[in-house]
Design a protein around this nucleic acid. Structure first.
Lengths: 223, 223
DNA sequence: CGTTGCTTTGATCGCGATCAACCTAGGTGG
DNA sequence: CCACCTAGGTTGATCGCGATCAAAGCAACG
C-alpha cells in the first residue's frame, strides 16, 4: 500500500473484475527495457495498458531532436487515437508487461457501453489536462521551475516524498522538459546543494523540503 | 465558400439538423471581443460551442506570464473537462456568439448516445493530438520554426494561402508559442523580407512561398 | 488632430545550449 | 577477484538565441 507503482516482476495485485469480453479477448505482450513497442506510422491495430513496468511515448523531428510526450505507469492506457496509424513512437523504459487490445474491438466496446465510454472520456480529458500543464511548463516556465514541478508530479504519482524513483534516464527527462541533459544535471545538482532534494543514487531521490520545491516551481528563484 | 471562418455578425449558415433534446435545451450567449467567458476556478456549470467568432483559452502563472493553450473557431466545443470547475480562463478574441450547454445534461446526453460519445471521443483525441504537436513545438523547435508551423496551421484551417487572417493579437501569438511579442514581430518581418509571406495589414497575410515556409518549420534556417 | 492601444525596430543582457572533458557504476572476461 | 570496458551521469567553459529594456511608428477612434 505504501509502494504504489511498485514496479517490477510482481503480478498485478488488483484482481480483475468479472471480465467483460474485451478483457478476455486481450493478450499479454512482454517487452524488454529500451525496446520499441510501436513506431510512428505503424498501423494502429493494437492499443495497450501497462500491467507492469514503465513506458514513454515520443516524437522525433527531422534533425533528430526528440520530444517525450508522456510517460505511462501501471494501469495507464496508451496507443489509442483518432488515427488508424500510430502518431508517435512508444518505447519501454523498464521491462514491461502490456495488455494489448484490438483497436477496433476496443473502440467498439467502449462506444457501446455507457460505463466504459464515460471512463474513457475521463481518461482523455485528464490526459488533455496533463498535456496542457506541460504546455504551460514548456512555454512559460524557467528550466528550474519545470524541473521542480516535474519532481513534484513524480512524487505525487509515487505517493511519497521519500525514495522517489526516476524510472527514466536524464536524457528522457530532458526530452520531456525541453532541456538538455546537461541542464537537467546542473539543476538537480544545484537542488541537492541547496538541500531541497537528496539523492543517494542517480535514479533515486528524496524531497526533504517540499515547500522550497514548490516555491521553485512557482518561479521564486531565491531561497 | 472561399471565406470559411468568415467571422462576424452573420447568422450561422448551416441549418441545424432535427434537434436532439440537448440542442434544444441550449441557450445562446453573446460576448464582446476581449470579454472573459469564464475564469479559471469558476464552477463549470456550462460548456460552449462557437457559433460565430473566435475565442481562446489560457492559463496565467503567479508572475503574470500567460500561456494560450488553444484557439477555438466556428463549430468548436470548449469548456468541458473532468473537473467540476474550469481549469483555465476563456476569453473572446472577436465578438462571439456561443451556444451554451448545461455541463451535467450535456455529459449525460453524450454518455447515453453511442453516436455522440463516439464524436466526442474523436474530438478529445484530436485535441490531445493538437496539444501534443504544440508540446513538440514548444519543447524542441526554434522560434522561427514554431512561427512557420503556426502560420501553416492557420492557413490550413482557413483553407487558403491567400488573405489568411490573424484573428488574434501579436501578444496572443507570443503567449501561444512561448515567445515574446517582439520576437513574433521580428520573425514575421524577416519572413516578409525574404518573400516567404506578404502582409498588407498586421492582421492579414498571404503565403506566396509555402514550400519555403515548410522548410522553415522543419528547421532549415537557410534559404 | 490628439489620444490610445497595438505593432515594429533597435540595443543589450542572460539563460540555457553547445562543445569538451571527466567521473562513476555496473557488467564482462581473464 | 581484479582490470578493463562502456554507458550514463556530472562538471566546466563558451556561445548564441530569444528575452528584456527602450523608443518610435501607425491605425482606429473620439
Amino acid at each position: 500500500m505504501a509502494a504504489l507503482q511498485a514496479r517490477l516482476p510482481m503480478r498485478n495485485p488488483v484482481p480483475l473484475q468479472p471480465a467483460p469480453t474485451i478483457e478476455t479477448a486481450s493478450v499479454i505482450r512482454r517487452v524488454k527495457a529500451g525496446e520499441t513497442i510501436y513506431f510512428e506510422g505503424d498501423a494502429a491495430t493494437c492499443c495497450y495498458r501497462v500491467v507492469t513496468g514503465f513506458a514513454k511515448e515520443y516524437s522525433i523531428l527531422e534533425d533528430g531532436k526528440r520530444q517525450v510526450l508522456d510517460f505511462y505507469g501501471i494501469g495507464e492506457m496508451f496507443g489509442i487515437s483518432q488515427s488508424e496509424s500510430h502518431l508517435h513512437t512508444a518505447e519501454a523504459i523498464t521491462d514491461c508487461t502490456l495488455r494489448c487490445f484490438q483497436r477496433d474491438a476496443w473502440l467498439h466496446a467502449v462506444t457501446a457501453s455507457p460505463d466504459l465510454s464515460q471512463k474513457f472520456m475521463n481518461t482523455l480529458m485528464t490526459r488533455l489536462h496533463r498535456s496542457r500543464e506541460r504546455l504551460t511548463m514548456l512555454g512559460r516556465m524557467s528550466a528550474t521551475a519545470r524541473m521542480a514541478l516535474f519532481l513534484m508530479r513524480l512524487a505525487e504519482e509515487q505517493n511519497s516524498e521519500q525514495d522517489v524513483r526516476f524510472p527514466m534516464s536524464r536524457q528522457d527527462i530532458g526530452d520531456h522538459l525541453g532541456l538538455t541533459i546537461e541542464t537537467v544535471c546542473r539543476i538537480l545538482t544545484d537542488m541537492k546543494r541547496r538541500g531541497i532534494i537528496t539523492g543517494s543514487t542517480a535514479r533515486l531521490f528524496s524531497i526533504p523540503d517540499m515547500d522550497a520545491l514548490g516555491l521553485l516551481a512557482h518561479g521564486d528563484a531565491s531561497i
